[in-house]
Design a protein around this nucleic acid. Structure first.
Length: 618
DNA sequence: CGGTTTTGACCAGCGC
DNA sequence: GCGCTGGTCAAAACCG
């Protein structure tokens, strides 16, 4: 601020000096207006400190300029040899002072006007923000209402619901009440508290139609206290050793956890999803020359989350990452994007909300599959676990006993006909105990989503905003979300968004945002990633009270490709899901997302590369 | 030296 | 019961 004031003083002096040279009053006024306007602009950049005294800048400016002016006049007149001129010069001086005072008053008024204008703009800006949120929330409410009709049980157990909405906030009754009161503040809180989204399937299963999934702790009350107890990932052997008798129900009715499978183009051994993983095993799976690597989460010693990483046999550039389990610890900021996404997917899977089906005949590899083109996302249910990746020989036998949801982030064009998953056949298999589900995030030409450090940028990523977003998130400012959203949207629309969006630009962006269904959908994901913190004190409560609850899959087509960029260890894949052609990835900022063309060029390589032929198979 | 990776061995589930 | 396969363990090796 000090610097700013000094700047203003300098400008003021310059103005008054200019006045001496050019006696034209109009020009002076115009120049001064410009000067004041520029100062107001400057001030707008510091509007956070706007509670400074009104018009103080102008005052300072004028006083300083006045001083300069007087001094200059004195110097000038004092050097005049003619003594007769001294009296007249005094008179002129007085005139100058008078005129300067008059100008000072004018400028002060001008300054006041400009300041009012600025305040009005800021007010409009905030109003637009509020309107934007209201619209989004209203849409969420509508969609939730329709969903509730389809599943009354969800309404009954609403507090437990983890409904994910792409493109809208959930405004579910009770939860909405909370949100209404302090939705924005809540988001801020979440941003401050740290993100702790986990995979929500467990919780979600409590309300799911999959009755055979008797979850140990479906009640939300348990969520906070004993997240670890809920885990059923450890194999029976481990369960025997790890658990005494607390989970009798669990052992009596072994629960097969939902799995979230993420297909993404990735050239590194494993997809960097923000969590820390330790490899504990590797095996050659039947039908796939690439070994399957087993990782467990090491963020917390007792975290039961596992993941399997394997290359897609038919396209080695595709990395198939299967997540299973629920984090029982706060997630790093960078891990929330994937966690929220997978939790959303798991929620979709277990909520039984995948209902519609599209008969088709061009996917022969899946014998009994259902697709739900729900809200523009493609969900695939299959009871043929061995073909869930169109790998007839790829064995994911465990998947036959696990509900699996697949998020396909490798598809290219958004047109639903171009992606094999997009058309599937037959109805929901009643015989399928645990169907597998696929989410297809196809990319459109311009609609791309990219995650970065838990944040999402939407559109043509011409430059990464992660740094700003992270910083903003860390300080939990209310405008963080909006800003990143605005930025992302501006990117999408190829609007050269300045670092400090101008009010009118923001207004235009707001307008466009509210009119763009795709953005709404992406927005929800972004919000999930950004503010989907685990609430309740830190520990990830799978699916409970997490922000994911506030999100429901949008109803709009979402031809997007998610680009999830994370770096935790450095050698991992910043899992680029951008499906753009290599040329398209050459755009600025794409270095963060574009994977090298060679899938197995990573230094450490190995574990999942086809060249790694170490047979860990038994 | 502590954490991670490697890798042979072990176990469980499933189909025949 | 046997073989196959997936999943995990755990000691050794490796790494920073």
């Amino acid at each position: 601020m000090e610097e700013n004031l000094v700047k203003r003083s300098d400008h003021g002096g310059a103005v008054m000096k200019e006045k001496k040279v050019d006696s034209s009053g109009d020009k002076e006024t115009a120049g001064r207006r410009e000067e004041v306007a520029s100062k107001v602009e400057e001030k707008s950049q510091y509007h956070e400190n706007d509670n400074m005294k009104p018009s103080s800048p102008g005052k300072k400016e004028l006083s300083s300029s006045k001083q300069v002016s007087v001094k200059t006049d004195t110097e000038r007149f004092s050097t005049e040899p003619d003594s007769m001129a001294s009296s007249s010069s005094r008179k002129e001086q007085d005139d100058q002072l008078e005129s300067a005072k008059a100008e000072m008053g004018e400028v002060r008024e001008e300054n006041q006007r400009l300041k009012m204008y600025l305040n009005r703009i800021m007010k409009d800006y905030h109003n637009l923000q509020m309107q934007f949120y209201d619209i989004v929330r209203q849409d969420a409410k509508n969609s939730t209402a329709t969903t509730a009709n389809n599943d009354h049980q969800e309404a009954v157990e609403e507090p437990e619901l983890v409904s994910l909405t792409l493109g809208r906030f959930s405004s579910d009754s009770k939860k909405d009440d909370k949100n209404k009161t302090s939705s924005q503040g809540k988001e801020d809180e979440r941003g401050k508290e740290g993100l702790s989204l986990g995979l929500d399937y467990k919780f979600e299963a409590s309300k799911s139609d999959l009755d055979d999934e008797a979850l140990p702790n479906p009640s939300p009350a348990n969520s906070c206290q004993e997240p670890k107890e809920e885990e059923s990932w450890p194999p029976s052997k481990v369960l025997k050793t790890m658990r005494s008798g607390d989970d009798e129900a669990l052992q009596q009715n072994p629960v097969k956890k939902a799995r979230v499978c993420v297909r993404a183009r990735c050239d590194t051994p494993t997809m960097i999803d923000g969590c820390q993983w330790r490899k504990y095993g590797q095996k050659i799976a039947k039908g796939n020359p690439c070994p399957r690597a087993y990782y467990r989460c090491t963020v917390a010693p007792s975290c039961p989350v596992r993941k399997q990483v394997q290359r897609y046999a038919q396209d080695m550039s595709i990395l198939i990452t299967t997540y299973e389990g629920t984090h029982n610890h706060p997630l790093p900021m960078s891990a929330t994007a994937m966690a929220s996404t997978t939790s959303a997917a798991a929620s979709m899977l277990l909520s039984g909300s995948l209902s519609s089906s599209q008969p088709s005949s061009n996917v022969p590899s899946i014998a009994n599959t259902t697709t739900a083109n729900l809200h523009g996302l493609n969900f695939y249910l299959s009871d043929n676990s061995k073909s869930m990746f169109y790998l007839p020989n790829s064995s994911l036998s465990a998947a036959s006993s696990h509900p699996t949801i697949t998020l396909d982030l490798t598809s290219t064009p958004s047109s639903s006909s171009s992606f094999p998953f997009n058309r599937l056949s037959s109805a929901y298999p009643t015989s399928a105990r645990y169907p597998s589900t696929s989410l297809s995030f196809g990319s459109s030409e311009s609609n791309t989503m990219s995650w970065g450090n838990g944040l999402l940028s939407y559109g043509n990523s011409t430059q990464p905003y992660m740094k700003n977003q992270i910083g903003a998130l860390n300080i939990g400012r209310p405008q963080t979300v909006e800003n990143s959203i605005y930025q992302s949207f501006m990117q999408k629309n190829n609007l050269n968004l300045p670092q400090q969006p101008l009010p009118d630009t923001i207004a235009a962006a707001t307008k466009a945002i509210t009119a763009d269904p795709n953005f709404q959908s992406a927005l929800a994901v972004a919000l999930t990633s950004i503010i989907g913190t685990g609430n309740n004190g830190g520990a990830t409560q799978p699916g409970r009270e997490s922000l994911g609850q506030n999100l429901k899959w949008g109803e709009q087509p979402l031809p997007i490709t998610s680009s999830y960029s994370q770096t935790v260890k450095g050698n991992g894949c910043a899992s680029s899901f951008l499906n753009k052609s290599p040329s398209s990835t050459s755009q600025p900022g794409s270095s963060m997302f574009s994977p090298p063309s060679l899938p197995f060029s990573t230094p450490k390589s190995a574990s999942t590369s086809p060249g790694d032929t170490r047979n860990h198979s038994n």
